[in-house]
Design a protein around this nucleic acid. Structure first.
Lengths: 237, 237, 237, 237
DNA sequence: CATGAATGAGACTTCATTCAT
DNA sequence: AATGAATGAAGTCTCATTCAT
């Protein structure tokens, strides 16, 4: 979304109403096609055909297939980031914030982003050549709310400090992506997944892992240990 | 490896030693190329060139690019499955078995599978046409040890029963894949990840989440209560 | 410039001041672009962009790319012809007039015409279709001063009569073009050519070739003979 | 010619008889088309069509249009250089050697090279992008015999030493190219040029310009000058 | 008049695949 | 069995040019 018009291609950029509509159309259909087919199997021909326009028109608004795809992914990131940041329940307890993040992401991805998620994951690596590393900043902004949440949790003692942030992030994002893959890849997805329930359950699991080993638990363990020692001493006597 | 030969292309029959060697060569190099480039960007030309053979020869042994790729992925699955099942420390505690699985997978993927992992993940979908759904059985066999472990844990009460197995599986596999993507995608992130340390930490986190949540805590509380009662009785006497 | 307006595109009639300015702008920038890129690699898009106008506007004033290019070349010829004819030192000795022609052409070409020179030379042929043979008359007018000079020289006996005019013309124009190519093609050949010096030297060479071969020599020999006779007579006295 | 097969493109280069024939065919037709149309207007499609083969076949043997064109030009240079060097009448007087060079070049160019000459001249400049500077070495070898001749002439005193070699080279090559252009460009070249006669005449002209100002002529000029001085003194007295 | 918008035509190039030898 | 050779099909991209507003 964001700087959509500004990054537009080619000749001029008065960004008239018509031209903006075209750009939006192409981005919309481009998103569909890229999501369905992946970068390589998507063709500019198909994008044009679905819109009922000439292929040349696509190239009037975007310098090339790659740029179009970059825009598609960029816009998608922008949307997710904006939506996420906007609804974040900052006042509420940390666990609730985590719940919000997990639920929101699962929903956003499943609504339309599922193919795009794949797109980013498979083409984002690249190094090969396609789709340069232009997404690193976006990726960072995208994970920022989660990273921030984890940091604050560590600072307040609610989240364990004995693990690197990166690992905690993988612990949260990994299962989410995995769940999404299952949903997408499942050819006989007879049963439609209940996203909200899954989010609920996942957060419960994650929170167990993230929490600082609790004070009470620690105290009780010490008690048991002491007791055990005392018993042994007593028996030895 | 394992069942590699068994599923061999059923074209010619004699399966001479020479033939088999050729097939193995093509599969080996095919794996390299597919792993490096992904399905679409890999070319039969390159595979032939790296082997110093004619492109046509590749087609003598494999019906086409797709079939070759399917075989490459299949063999890779076979290898991983075999290796994993073979080393599984069945006698040891559940946590140790989980540790083994996590460590083994991270290692196997990082050694050579990182590109193949991407290959499977990104091409595995594609209801379009490429790389059909022939991998579902493999995928099932591949996650079988983990699923089995989780089942046993639930049966023994060591692992919480209030979560569906699928979710627990995602909880374990998701972070592993996420960590691998980070490693692969990282623009030569100076610091090389210490796989074994990461496995260790990840298992610690996972185990917190997997354990039956209140079991230990409840046991300890009962202990404290009993103790308290005993004390009071003793003092009353 | 000169007859530029006269041959203007005969589309609209009023030829308002504004119109004429537009036409001149497009011709000016068109000349730049064609000179820099050659006919094929020049694009109407670039011409429009450099002027900050719409591509369509170019087509409002010129029937197409080809016509524009023809006009550009035509105007350039007009300029050169006008400039050349205007400064011609008609009163002075023939050799001086030749010097003027050589010097003037080298200068004109190098100032801006170098690319145009190439343009004419390479596109001038192309019986194919681009840039028709409309330039023959111009070409003739362009070489007219030189041809005239050579004719007069032959008439007066200063220039040898035993060679066809065409050949003499090639003898003069050829080296000039060759020198220009060297300058243009030179991969930024450190040393900038001193045009005036080159003209000087070239004329010296050319004049040796153009002069009636034995004229001077014969004259001098007769002088020596006369002198010798006179001396002998004087001594005899 | 020369290293034809070696520089070939793409996959392998066993240089079988068939493959070599194909390469030669493509080069032959490519030369035709490039010569007729110039680099930009020539199309790989047309080259393939004239040969009755698929366009893809062209790309089997040459990496691309550019490479093909480079090879075409390179081979042409090779031919000219070889032919020229081979027939050079080294034992004979300098003037005869010059005559040979002029005659040979005019002939070679007119036989088939005329379009290629244009090709080299127009695309050789480039800097723009097409057809890199790969021809500088060839260009040097191509003018080497002439440069050598001029050097030897200067050393022996037969050719004037008061002019830079570059200029002398332009004096020789320039008219030749100009004559060729005339022949090629002339749309109504009713009269076919008599190459041998033209060469004869051109050499006569050039030789007058190149020769060192002759000893006798110099002496006579000094005499005339002395005389003139003496006369003036005598009259002043 | 000026232009924004659209496009038809065609260029170069890639690649999996076939087939005769 | 191996391969040299050839190619159909498709893809991305460029550009001069048209036309309604």
């Amino acid at each position: 979304m964001a700087a959509a018009g500004a990054r537009a291609a080619g000749r001029r950029s008065p960004a008239s109403a018509k031209s903006e509509q075209r750009i939006r159309d192409i981005l919309r259909v481009g998103r569909e096609v890229f999501a369905e087919k992946g970068y390589e199997r998507a063709t500019t021909t198909e994008i044009a055909q679905r819109l009922g326009i000439s292929e040349a028109t696509v190239f009037t608004y975007f310098r090339g297939k790659r740029e179009l795809c970059v825009r598609v992914i960029g816009d998608w990131y922008d949307e997710i980031i904006a939506t996420t940041e906007q609804g974040m329940p900052r006042g509420q307890p940390l666990r609730e914030q985590l719940h919000y993040l997990v639920r929101t992401h699962l929903r956003l991805f499943l609504i339309q982003g599922t193919g795009l998620c794949a797109l980013v994951l498979s083409e984002g690596r690249s190094k090969g050549q396609a789709l340069g590393e232009s997404f690193l900043p976006l990726q960072r902004r995208y994970t920022a709310p989660l990273m921030d949440l984890l940091s604050r949790g560590q600072a307040s003692g609610e989240i364990r400090r004995d693990m690197p942030l990166r690992l905690l992030r993988s612990l949260v994002l990994g299962p989410m992506e995995h769940i999404l893959w299952e949903v997408v890849a499942a050819p006989t997805s007879g049963r439609v997944v209940d996203i909200d329930a899954a989010a609920e359950q996942l957060v419960t699991l994650l929170w167990s892992a993230l929490q600082a080993p609790e004070a009470e638990l620690a105290a009780l363990r010490r008690l048991r240990a002491d007791l055990s020692t005392a018993l042994q001493r007593s028996q030895a006597a």
